[in-house]
Design a protein around this nucleic acid. Structure first.
Length: 535
DNA sequence: GGTTTGTTCAAAT
DNA sequence: TGAACAAACC
């Protein structure tokens, strides 16, 4: 979901680009966005866990795009989401609830025999399971595509990778659909990349440096920008009623200081502001600035940016809202895709086996994991090598060729003929190789077992104290507010930021569409050529 | 009149 | 789930 209306608000800074702009570079991929889009074409098959290869269509979709990047000599780095962080639970639970409702309705339609209506509802019911992500991971391994599973938010991991030098595993841009990346400070993001590589790019520095665009962010830095995002409403904290991106921008750009902007907000909307809003605001800011990520260098959990002592104190040393700390062995096992980040169970590698390793979920034991388990995870063979240890690498590559070919339905006859020349794999053998963990339900519980402990432990009166301190506005502040309020009104009213498209822009858009269509047919040709070359 | 909020429709093949 | 549009609100 990201930041409400942010992309629409930043329209003047969005530039159409083609992904080949990043030829020769390392580019991060937000796995979830492509997995989710890919799942549309086979949502019913996924929801009902139907037999046949169609339920793996999302893998074709994903690998088609990976191959597109490789065709343009881009090195993809795929980043998966890990566990949920506590403050995101509310939005997550609501989404799950809606999916369940859609699923129920879909089943009803199916019983009535209305497959079309059911199919439409299944599209709303489909969710990306750890098992689906893991199936993709196995293909990425076999194709030598770099990937990492973030301990928590993939966005945070992507922003962290963006801050690294290329030599240290850094990336220069991210392909995603999630506007949160901007709040995390990700320097370059490509949104809405289509199957030909056309997309829309936002470069963060251009936003801060440009002087001839409205809205102007000349006097913003990344902290103010993130503050504006949180105020406008994000996944970690809904906005105060009546506050959207335009009002949030007005407040932050006027005072150029988040505490002041919040004071004014409290003065104006205090009656509609939840008691703990200021505390939640600080926490949401801390997520964007100091989220926990996996550091491949030290092979352990780190913060994007270390927390200053002052901030730690104001948060009462309690960082569980960022997702709980975990031992390096566990973070590394998650990052490598060996451990399900939601259940903390090892992914089962062998379809015939029903036994699996299980990490102790108690926080207390995290620092001293049973040595056997830790070494078992870190030294065992990767899941794909176990499944396919009897399979030559050549055959696996051929398999991928088959999957990619399948996507180009029109050319499948030619593709299959060519494929048979390379390797006489039957459809069935591919189904078997991709059917890995379906027997075991890996449905992730939405909450992380770690997080409950600390809350329970925390003294209630301490909690109240913190809330009180954060929500109190002193007399001095009140005086300042009454002073700034008059100026605030002036600033908000004198420079309204229009978010509606003018007719001129609409015309420009339809002309752009025409141009894109021409470009698309060219790109499609090269894309198809690419697949034949691979086989 | 401008902004927020609610509703509808398309997405992939 | 996001984008576009319509209605409601200030």
């Amino acid at each position: 979901m990201g930041i409400k209306d942010l992309l629409r608000f930043l329209k003047p800074y969005i530039k159409p680009i083609h992904i080949k702009k990043y030829a020769g570079k390392r580019v991060g991929i937000d796995a979830y966005s492509w997995l989710h889009k890919g799942a549309y074409s086979c949502s019913m098959e996924i929801c009902l866990n139907m037999e046949g290869h169609k339920k793996f269509q999302y893998l074709n979709y994903f690998m088609h795009r990976i191959n597109l990047l490789r065709h343009y000599k881009i090195t993809p780095v795929v980043v998966f989401d890990g566990g949920n962080i506590p403050c995101k639970d509310a939005t997550g639970l609501e989404r799950d609830r809606r999916r369940e409702v859609s699923r129920g309705l879909a089943m009803d339609k199916l019983k009535e025999g209305n497959v079309n209506a059911a199919s439409e509802l299944f599209q709303r019911a489909v969710s990306i399971t750890p098992s689906m992500a893991h199936q993709l991971i196995q293909i990425l391994r076999s194709e030598d595509i770099e990937f990492v599973v973030a301990p928590y938010e993939a966005d945070a991991q992507l922003a962290y990778l963006s801050s690294l030098e290329v030599d240290n595993g850094g990336i220069v841009a991210v392909v995603s659909e999630d506007s949160d990346l901007l709040a995390y400070g990700c320097p370059a993001i490509v949104f809405k990349m289509d199957r030909y590589g056309n997309g829309e790019e936002i470069v963060l520095n251009k936003i801060f440096e440009s002087s001839d665009h409205v809205p102007s962010f000349r006097h913003f830095d990344i902290e103010l920008f993130a503050g504006m995002c949180v105020m406008a409403g994000c996944d970690f904290l809904p906005s105060v009623p009546g506050i959207g991106i335009v009002k949030a921008y007005s407040l932050v750009s006027k005072y150029r200081n988040l505490d002041r902007a919040l004071s004014v907000l409290k003065f104006e909307k205090g009656n509609q502001m939840p008691e703990d809003y200021l505390k939640s605001f600080r926490e949401a800011m801390a997520v964007f600035q100091h989220a926990r990520i996996y550091d491949a260098d030290s092979k352990s959990l780190k913060h994007i940016k270390p927390l200053p002592e002052k901030l730690l104190q104001s948060l009462d040393q309690d960082l569980d809202f960022l997702g709980p700390e975990m031992p390096p062995s566990m973070a590394a096992a998650i990052a490598k895709g060996d451990l399900d980040p939601s259940t903390m169970e090892a992914f089962d590698h062998c379809p015939s086996s029903t036994t699996y390793l299980k990490f102790s979920m108690k926080f207390q034991t995290c620092d001293q994991l049973p040595r056997q388990e830790a070494t078992a995870i870190s030294t065992e063979e990767t899941c794909f090598s176990i499944i396919s240890s009897h399979k030559a690498r050549k055959e696996r590559t051929a398999e991928m060729g088959w999957i990619a070919m399948l996507e180009e339905g029109k050319y499948s006859n030619e593709a299959m003929k060519l494929e048979k020349l390379v390797s006489p794999l039957s459809t069935q053998s591919i189904e078997e190789s991709t059917k890995i963990t379906d027997e075991i339900s890996l449905k992730a519980p939405d909450n992380n077992p770690f997080r409950k402990r600390k809350l329970a432990e925390l003294e209630l009166d301490q909690l109240e104290n913190v809330t009180e301190q954060l929500s109190v506005v002193t007399e001095a502040e009140k005086m300042e507010i009454s002073w700034v309020k008059t100026e605030s009104q002036e600033s908000v009213d004198s420079k309204p930021i229009k978010m509606m498209m003018t007719d001129g822009k609409k015309r420009a858009k339809s002309e752009k569409l025409k141009r894109d269509n021409c470009l698309n047919s060219e790109n499609k040709k090269s894309s198809i050529l690419n697949f034949f070359c691979r086989v």
